[in-house]
Design a binder for these strands. Structure first.
Lengths: 209, 209
DNA sequence: GTCTATACAACGATAGAC
DNA sequence: GTCTATCGTTGTATAGAC
């Protein structure tokens, strides 16, 4: 909560270039994450973000080209697919769901969970966020993961996995549905993994009916 | 979809006070549903809603205390639990998931799907919407449905069902993830029902480890 | 001296309140 | 129908880095 932006509060605001070392960009990004997280894209104001960062609103334009650019830079999915996907694919494919869920929970719990909420909230008013999520699911989950499994109906499986993963995120981080919101990773993984594993490699019924 | 605002359209507009507030209220609610559905909470403007309802914007304040109140009144979940739940509970409990999913798809597809998106969108900027959804899931899904099944860990099962159902809605109506977004009800039900059924009545692993 | 990060002021638009 | 608040954005002068 406590902002903790280390702007030298004692000193009066000065015009002109700051002393080197004061990283306006980083301060803006940090503040933007907080505010977008709490309020979503529309409700968040450039002024509020700049204020929390202790800099002028015009800096948003200067560094990010505007609110939209700041948003894109701030609410990025904190996952590097080319790093994560190979790790997930190592080992028994029948335990892929477990590894995937464990990773999902670790990543989003670590960044505070609020950031997932931010992503979901952003989908509200920002079509770009929808596109971001869709592209992430399709490119990463589908192209890199499901296709590598060499199973039937990969597109459908991808979408089904999407329902379970996004649904988990919504329940845990946005709606904060108990006991799921506070449950240990092991409990969540143990209960959900079998279902996700069916979507990944299990029998979906008759492919061509 | 089609506006169909049933304000006494035949009668010519009259000066002064209308017969009663009921018509204005209903017209506002109908218009609000449309506009909130299409644009989300923030983007929707009181003026646009009032305009579509054919009344003065000030009426929003008068009847609902403001935009917030109008929203709460307008975007209600279009399901009557005391009617739906008994219907779902009839028949084989092992096919409850199928009935539930079928009903879910029918309801939200019929109202246009956009209304589910609206509900999700509302969670963005409106904490009340989160509370609404949480309470709906807990009271209806939990108290009326899962408890009636007499299974172990009913709270956890409820939350798990929530993940799958909300996730389905997100994928189909908000993110519009193909092929799920355009799939026939039967396909969706056939692929997801087994997973949902496990959450409802299946084996979740060791309850108390 | 030149470049550039910065702060401040102000503009045009728009929404909610009254 | 008017008023007021506030939004994102832009122009410009200035202070420090190089």
């Amino acid at each position: 909560m406590s902002s903790g932006i280390d702007q030298d509060g004692a000193e009066p605001k000065r015009r002109g270039r700051r002393r080197s070392g004061a990283d306006t960009k980083a301060a803006l990004l940090a503040a933007a994450r907080e505010v977008f997280t709490e309020q979503g894209y529309d409700a968040a104001t450039v002024r509020a973000i700049a204020g929390k960062a202790g800099v002028d609103p015009a800096m948003v334009n200067h560094w990010f080209g505007g609110k939209e650019g700041l948003f894109t830079a701030a609410v990025a999915i904190p996952i590097n697919p080319s790093e994560v996907v190979p790790q997930l694919l190592e080992g028994d494919p029948q335990q892929l769901a477990e590894r995937l869920l464990h990773r999902f929970l670790t990543v989003w719990d670590n960044v505070g969970g609020g950031q997932f909420a931010a992503l979901m909230r952003s989908i509200a008013t920002n079509e770009n966020a929808v596109r971001m999520l869709r592209e992430f699911i399709q490119s990463v989950l589908f192209t890199r993961l499901v296709k590598a499994l060499d199973v039937d109906q990969p597109e459908l499986r991808t979408a089904l996995c999407g329902t379970q993963i996004v649904g988990l995120g919504m329940a845990r981080y946005v709606v904060r549905l108990e006991p799921l919101a506070s449950a240990d990773h092991d409990v969540v993984v143990a209960t959900i993994a079998p279902n996700l594993q069916r979507y990944l490699t299990g029998d979906l019924g008759s492919p061509a009916r």
